[in-house]
C-alpha cells in the first residue's frame, strides 16, 4: 500500500531515484551509526536467543547423568529412545501428513477465495470480508467443545482428518487476505491481454498470474505448514489414540510425565524443530517481502 502511494507521490520516476545512493563508495552521513551501537546490543540479544538452543542441543547429545557443558562425548541414545520407545517415529509421520495436507488445502481454498476478492465485485463481498476479519478474534481454543461435538458427529474423532480440517479452517482467513493482496498487485490488464489472445479465464490465470504469485504462495503455504506442525490443542483434543498423535502432543506427554526424562525431552524437541528450521531457512528471503506486500498494511 505504502509503496504504491510513495510511487504515486514521487515526482521523479521511482526506480531511478534510489539508484545514485546504491553504489556505496561513500556512505551518506545519515546512515553512519557507530559500530559498537550495533554489535553490542545485537550480541547481548543473541546470547539470550541462542543459549536456549544450545541448551536443548546439549541435553540431546550428552549421555544421561552427565553435567558437562560441552556436547562431547556425543551419544545418540536419547534420539533412539525417543524415536522408537516413545513413538516419535509415528508422531513424526502423522505430523508431516497433517502439515502437508493442511498446506495443500489452505493454499487451494485460499487461492480461489483470494482471487474472487481481488478480481470481482459481488453482493456478499463486504460481508465475506467482514467475516474474515472478525474470525481473527475467534480463538480456536475456546471452540474446542463444539468442535469436538461436530467431529464426533462426523465420526472423525481419532482421525487425522479432523485435525487437518480444523487447522485449515483457522489458517484460512489470514491466508485469503494475504493471497488477495498478492493478486491485487498483479495488474488486471495482464490477464485481459491473455483473454484477447484467446485464453480462457482459468488458463490466463494459470499462465499469467500464478507464476507471479510464487513468493506469496510460498509464504502462505509455509505459514500453514509451520502453524499446523506447531499447533497442539486440536491434536490433543481430537486424537486420543496413541498411534494417531502428533509431535507437539508427544512432547507434552514427555513433559507431563512424573519424572521428566530430560535427555528424551531434548531429543524430542530437536525432532520437532528440524522441519521448521528447514522451512524457515527456505522462506527467509521471502519473509520480509511477503509481509511488506500485504500482511500489515493490507
Amino acid at each position: 500500500m505504502i509503496t504504491k502511494e510513495a510511487v504515486a507521490a514521487a515526482p521523479a520516476p521511482a526506480p531511478a531515484a534510489p539508484a545514485p545512493t546504491r553504489p556505496g563508495k561513500k556512505r551518506p552521513a545519515w546512515d553512519e551509526v557507530p559500530r559498537w551501537q550495533i554489535y553490542l546490543p545485537l550480541g547481548i540479544y543473541l546470547v539470550f536467543t541462542l543459549i536456549p538452543f544450545y541448551w536443548i542441543l546439549l541435553f540431546a547429545v550428552r549421555p544421561a547423568g552427565s553435567t558437562s557443558l560441552v556436547p562431547w562425548p556425543m551419544t545418540t541414545e536419547h534420539f533412539e529412545k525417543v524415536w522408537t520407545d516413545r513413538g516419535f517415529g509415528t508422531y513424526f509421520t502423522n505430523s508431516v501428513y497433517v502439515g502437508l495436507a493442511t498446506l495443500v488445502m489452505t493454499t487451494l481454498v485460499a487461492l480461489a477465495g483470494g482471487y474472487a476478492l481481488a478480481r470481482f465485485d459481488f453482493k456478499i463481498k463486504r460481508v465475506f470480508m467482514l467475516a474474515l476479519l472478525c474470525s481473527q478474534f475467534v480463538p480456536g481454543a475456546l471452540l474446542l467443545v463444539p468442535l469436538f461435538e461436530i467431529f464426533a458427529g462426523l465420526q472423525m474423532i481419532n482421525s487425522l482428518g479432523s485435525v487437518i480440517i480444523a487447522e485449515t479452517v483457522f489458517q484460512l482467513p489470514l491466508s485469503i487476505i494475504l493471497i488477495s493482496n498478492f493478486i491485487k498487485n498483479v495488474p488486471y490488464s495482464l490477464e485481459e491481454a491473455a483473454w484477447v489472445d484467446g485464453c480462457g479465464r482459468f488458463r490466463a490465470f494459470r499462465i499469467v498470474v500464478l507464476p507471479l504469485l510464487r513468493p506469496g504462495l510460498i509464504a502462505v503455504g509455509s505459514f500453514a505448514f509451520v502453524h499446523s506442525w506447531n499447533h497442539f490443542l486440536f491434536a490433543l483434543m481430537f486424537l486420543n489414540n496413541q498411534h494417531k498423535q502428533t509431535i507437539p502432543v508427544g512432547l507434552n506427554s514427555l513433559m507431563s510425565a512424573d519424572s521428566v526424562d530430560l535427555g528424551a525431552l531434548a531429543a524430542g524437541g530437536i525432532v520437532a524443530a528440524v522441519p521448521v528450521v528447514i522451512v524457515f531457512a527456505f522462506i527467509q528471503k521471502w519473509l520480509i517481502t511477503g509481509f511488506s506486500a500485504g500482511a500489515v498494511k493490507g
Binding site: T49, P52, F59, L251, M255, L265, F280, A281
Partner: peptide, 27 residues
C-alpha cells in the same frame, strides 16, 4: 537477522520444552 528471528518459528510446546530444560532444578 536469521539468528535473531529464529525463535519465531518455534512452537509454544517446544518453547516450553526448552525452558523446562533451562529452569529445572537439578541440571
Amino acid at each position: 537477522r536469521a539468528m535473531v528471528f529464529s525463535p519465531w518459528a518455534v512452537s509454544g510446546v517446544l518453547t516450553s520444552a526448552i525452558w523446562v530444560l533451562l529452569y529445572n532444578s537439578q541440571t
